[in-house]
Amino acid sequence: MAALLLWAFTGLDVWSAVAVLSAAAALAPLNKAVARVRADTHGVHSHTLLRRRSVRWSDIADLQVRLKYVQKPSLQDVRRLVVVRRGGQGGRGGRKWTLPLPVGYTTQQRIQDRDFTDKLEAFRELHRRHGTPESSHLVVVSNRTAGSGWAGSLLVSVLLLVLAGAAAYTVPGTDAYLRDWRSAERCTAETPAAERGETCWTTVPAVIEYTEPSRGKGASWLYFADARPMERLSVRREAAEAFHEGDEVELTVWRGNVKKVAGEHHTWHEYDAPPGLTAASAALLVLIAGYPAARVLVRVRRRRRPEDEELPPVLPFVAVLAGTALWLLPLCYLHPTTLFATRLTTVWPLAGALVSLALFTWAWHATRFREPEESGPGRGAMAHHPE
């Protein structure tokens, strides 16, 4: 309302956007605040601000509990009731519907919400009377069990891989740019005017009018008298503090960029990120993307297992990623554009790939499903998640 009033009095269009965004942000909590859920002899009925929905007991295959770990000082987890529709394959039910109510909380002292437990039992009793439950076992699904979703992890992995690809795409251009700069020479009197500053570098005199060192993480600036050859130049804070008002300096210009500012007491050089750093950053993003990908792999391998079966930890695959980082990151940093160009850059990645393959084979074996009789002393079989 305040944004609408400001829009009416000021006429600024930005306030209309603020009003729309505020209304959209308020809609989600308001939708939860007015939610009502009722279960009767006919089925389950949900009423929210945006939607009304009903499901008959005959169409409900099972009732589950969705457990979300919070790990807050006062809470340990949040429990929600999930309705599983009929029509699924492999005994896992069909589409799932998480009810807005009831919601249960478990404290760090393992004290569970009795109201949620009572309502859950009431729902299950109505289901047994007026429907046909596929199982009498209460399935509790969490992010540690086979029934948890993997779409979010897959999306995160894909986004990280896209960022890594974008970073790797700039490596050849950065390498060529730095090679050209290192090989560039000072322009001479015979250099054509059209090529000055492009194929060779030139120097321009200037006088510093004043400096503006940053007080935080912002940019620091050098301002030049009469805005010649430019009004200001962004530099590091140390350079802005080293130069002073009235200093006569010489600017080195190449391809329209100031590469160096040389004064009597201090010289500033533009920082050019080496291509190896960019390549190593791209490789690091790929390795980070491997963690959510490993979570997806573990879940996909258990897609036919009971939904409340605990998943094995992904730590073996983390060891694979760590072992790969030991040889991949130095290789990308030292040889970003010369892979397979020499004997060293050929043997290095091949040997590293064999090591990573061996580690992956071990991780695959370590996270496989084991029947109870396969579990040795002290290992134990995988247990269902506690209700």
Rank of each mutant, 00 (worst) to 15 (best):
residue 386 P to R: 09
residue 332 C to K: 05
residue 37 V to H: 00
residue 65 V to F: 05
residue 101 L to D: 08
residue 276 G to L: 00
residue 121 E to M: 06
residue 81 L to K: 02
residue 57 W to F: 11
residue 168 A to N: 04
residue 368 R to T: 10
residue 110 R to G: 08
residue 3 A to G: 10
residue 265 H to P: 06
residue 335 H to Y: 15
residue 146 A to N: 01
residue 289 A to F: 04
residue 297 L to K: 09
residue 13 D to S: 15
residue 177 Y to M: 12
residue 65 V to Q: 04
residue 307 E to Q: 09
residue 48 T to H: 03
residue 75 L to A: 15
residue 110 R to M: 10
residue 139 V to C: 10
residue 154 L to I: 08
residue 184 A to F: 04
residue 146 A to S: 06
residue 144 R to E: 13
residue 340 F to Q: 05
residue 158 V to F: 14
residue 103 V to P: 02
residue 129 R to M: 14
residue 241 E to A: 11
residue 111 I to D: 15
residue 374 E to M: 07
residue 321 L to Q: 01
residue 371 E to W: 15
residue 227 A to Y: 14
residue 36 R to I: 04
residue 180 D to Y: 11
residue 301 R to S: 01
residue 140 V to Q: 05
residue 138 L to W: 01
residue 83 V to T: 05
residue 139 V to F: 04
residue 154 L to V: 07
residue 268 W to E: 00
residue 90 G to N: 07
residue 1 M to C: 14
residue 288 I to S: 08
residue 313 P to V: 02
residue 38 R to S: 11
residue 188 T to M: 08
residue 58 S to R: 13
residue 236 R to Q: 13
residue 307 E to H: 09
residue 143 N to S: 14
residue 308 D to F: 00
residue 288 I to K: 06
residue 333 Y to G: 06
residue 373 E to W: 10
residue 22 S to E: 09
residue 351 A to R: 05
residue 123 F to D: 03
residue 95 R to F: 08
residue 147 G to T: 00
residue 351 A to C: 10
residue 104 G to T: 02
residue 186 R to N: 12
residue 370 R to G: 06
residue 50 L to T: 05
